[in-house]
């Protein structure tokens, strides 16, 4: 029995994530919870932190739930599989520089900066489908490959909508990148923690396979 918790902190497109999880957990013994209660965090087997909006307002929303330290206990100590999406990933950084300088959760070392656009020739936000570059093979990507029914992950694209880039410190925590003016961190992974800059819930077949793989973690 799986209990997938989508953290509701007053922001973001929870419904899209909910719809996609519902789709990939069809015919499975799986319950989807949308809340930020301690009780549901405790019950959860998988935790998803969606994120749409600015770094600071998302972070404030999360702080206002008053369960941040309990969430940290569930993820950092109990090691429940965790997925942060878009700003939900960016908030895991040490610092974010969107409209000022703000401390992040610091689960994954690094900083979130505006996408570099020195010649002003890029359309910002980076919006749309971009090709993924898999930097290494992990248990997760192996499983994903199998689900995609493809022999390699070349020429797979995912949907991005963001203006900031998570420049994480440890190269070995970076699994997927894409390119938009500069190298963009597309997926990070550290033990039970996964973060994606792209939106798996909006990346159609690839995204659904990604979420299905996430539900098999733990």
């Amino acid at each position: 029995m799986k209990n997938v918790l989508i953290i509701d902190y007053g922001t973001g497109n929870l419904k899209s994530v909910h719809n996609a999880i519902k789709k990939v957990s069809e015919k499975q013994d799986c319950k989807i919870l949308v809340s930020s209660s301690r009780e549901d965090l405790k019950k959860s087997t998988h935790i998803i932190l969606p994120g749409v909006g600015a770094f600071e307002s998302c972070l404030n929303g999360l702080i206002k739930t008053k369960v941040l330290s309990y969430l940290e206990e569930m993820v950092l100590e109990k090691k429940k599989p965790f997925l942060g999406i878009c700003v939900g990933m960016q908030m895991l950084a040490t610092k974010g520089f969107e409209n000022g300088e703000f401390a992040g959760l610091d689960w994954i070392s690094g900083e979130v900066n505006k996408i570099n656009n020195p010649n002003n020739n890029l359309k910002i936000p980076h919006m749309g489908w971009n090709t993924l570059k898999f930097l290494k093979e992990t248990a997760f990507t192996k499983c994903l490959l199998k689900k995609m029914k493809v022999t390699n992950l070349n020429d797979i694209s995912a949907y991005f909508v963001h203006s900031y880039n998570f420049k994480n410190k440890n190269a070995n925590e970076k699994v997927i990148t894409t390119c938009y003016g500069e190298e963009i961190t597309a997926m990070i992974s550290k033990e039970n923690i996964i973060g994606t800059q792209f939106h798996p819930e909006k990346s159609h077949y690839f995204g659904l396979a990604f979420l299905k793989t996430f539900l098999e973690q733990g």
Binding site: T11, N13, V52, G53, A54, S57, V87, P125, M127, V161, H162, S163
Partner: peptide, 8 residues
């Protein structure tokens, strides 16, 4: 755009 993010 401030509340929900420019992208949306």
């Amino acid at each position: 755009s401030k509340k929900f993010g420019n992208q949306c």
